[in-house]
């Protein structure tokens, strides 16, 4: 019996040693800039494209979390990230006003559009976004798939319902034609495609997914459909542990002429049109 226990002790010690070594090597976080980004910038592949360029230029790792604007702002408020990259102007302004963010810096934009089945069952083609929503609501003749996840796109959708004169709760209870997924843009598009339904999407994600979809653009005009992406560094006065210098590097990186040029050309080779328009720190004209 003694033999077993010695052997076992040796094995146990070896195991513990391995675990401790593995644990120690894994515990350390390499110096990295933590950024929470809206999923539409991730699903389109823009971040995968820009990430190595930032890392090369500043010699630091970039840790990117993709999430809806709602959860990205929550990470920012808690100080779990150093910067947020999102697209919901009213909430961004509130975020800065409440002292969580340093400054809202717009760096790119595109447009939202309403996509749907090519047959356009509800007959909303040619209408403006508000009228199209009104028609869907009044006739209930077409299914609509909603993000339902508090993302920037979801916020825009709610704003359009409001502009069309409907309270959002009334919309949610309007009937089985209104489908809330709670998922990011890509899966929401795929679901709308399966259900032959309409949905509101940003242009970038739609183009990136277009080859997998039978959906076509239905409504693409109207100032309300403007979609502006901004970067906000987290305020070091609120969260001193965050790395505001690296966050500022990211802000300057994104609005630098070189990167603005790359953003403006991103996707041209693959989709024939750019997915994003650069706007170097300026609010784009509606």
């Amino acid at each position: 019996m003694k033999q077993i226990s010695i052997k076992t002790k040796v094995i146990a010690l070896a195991v513990i040693a391995i675990v401790v070594i593995a644990g120690v090597t894994m515990m350390g976080r390499p110096p990295a800039l933590k950024v929470a980004t809206t999923s539409s910038l991730y699903d389109t592949g823009l971040w995968e494209y820009l990430e190595p360029k930032f890392e090369d230029k500043y010699g630091t790792k970039l840790h990117i979390f993709y999430a809806g604007t709602g959860i990205a702002l929550e990470y920012g408020k808690r100080g779990d990230v150093d910067a947020v990259v999102i697209h919901d102007k009213p909430r961004e302004e509130q975020f800065v006003a409440e002292g969580y963010g340093v400054e809202r810096v717009p760096f790119a934009y595109n447009y939202f559009l309403i996509v749907g089945p090519s047959g356009d069952r509800a007959g909303i083609k040619g209408l403006c976004a508000e009228d199209a929503f009104s028609k869907l609501m009044e006739t209930g003749s077409g299914d609509f798939v909603c993000r339902g996840d508090d993302s920037g796109t979801h916020a825009k959708e709610k704003a359009i319902w409001q502009a069309a004169g409907f309270g959002y709760e009334a919309v949610q209870q309007a009937g089985a034609w209104y489908i809330e997924t709670g998922r990011t843009m890509g899966p929401t598009l795929l679901m709308a495609n399966e259900k032959n339904a309409y949905t509101l999407t940003d242009n970038g994600t739609f183009l990136a997914y277009r080859s997998d979809l039978d959906l076509v653009p239905i409504v693409e005009t109207g100032a309300v459909l403007l979609n502006v992406y901004s970067v906000i560094a987290i305020n070091p006065e609120r969260h001193p542990e965050t790395n505001v210098e690296m966050a500022n590097d990211l802000v300057y990186f994104l609005i630098s002429p070189e990167i603005q040029g790359l953003i403006g050309n991103y996707g041209v080779a693959e989709y024939g049109v750019p997915l994003f328009m650069p706007c170097a720190g300026q609010e784009p004209e509606e």
Partner: peptide, 20 residues
């Protein structure tokens, strides 16, 4: 593990250690 949580000072949120 969140920055404003009780163990936020460990700074291990979003690391493999947190997953373990």
């Amino acid at each position: 593990l969140s920055r404003t949580g009780p163990l936020g000072d460990l700074d291990i949120l979003f690391t493999p250690a947190a997953m373990v």
